[in-house]
Design a protein around this nucleic acid. Sequence first.
DNA 1: GTCGAACTACGATGAATCTCGTACTATGGA
DNA 2: TCCATAGTACGAGATTCATCGTAGTTCGAC
Lengths: 105, 105
Amino acid sequence: MDTMSDELVHPERDEIRIEAVLHALADPVRLHLVREMDRIGVGVACGAIELPVTKSTRTHHLRTLREAGVIRMRKEGTSRIGTVRRDDLDARYPGLLSAILSAES
Amino acid sequence: MDTMSDELVHPERDEIRIEAVLHALADPVRLHLVREMDRIGVGVACGAIELPVTKSTRTHHLRTLREAGVIRMRKEGTSRIGTVRRDDLDARYPGLLSAILSAES
DNA sequence: GTCGAACTACGATGAATCTCGTACTATGGA
DNA sequence: TCCATAGTACGAGATTCATCGTAGTTCGAC
């Protein structure tokens, strides 16, 4: 193809909505994903986080998190490297992410 | 009736789950309800907060918030007085409620 | 007692969504 | 080139959920 904008779609910081963030983090599988990404810190291959769901379900949850603006994903070979958008979330909703991630499950 | 435990059921502070709180606040109608209750501060008649939904839908949302541990409700005549459980939420998830309620909608 | 107001209970309906399996694409190594 | 790996796309099934209407309950006023 010619113009292959091969990048994944992410909302801008200003486009992140609080309802979408809360909905994304309300699911136990997605909350686990985000906790693991945050714990590891640097970009992590999303497939490396073990989950009790299949590959396609994992893809679904990662897309939900990405479209809500909670994580950022970039392609690297055949893998996807995911990071928590802590800077954007802290700027837009100060204290929210810390409060959620520090809560004991 | 004889033993009429006329009180509404609320989870104890220790029983509040973060997933339930996030799910409860992810709905725009419920988030509006909680914001109004928090703004008014003291107990407010739940029916006084105007909403674009019917009475039975309002009841459904108030029950969701109550069962998640976000609000407390007590009976007063034929009305229900609702208050945000800020003390319990702040104790269990410090900063969470402030972060959510101070977010511009 | 009777009436209205506030709220709840219950069932129905349509939409969202969590899950999966299968098929497909893309990347990199042998 | 061939193939394995990592991920996505798509459709299906089951569940959850937001919404409503109607009926029923409870309380206070008259």
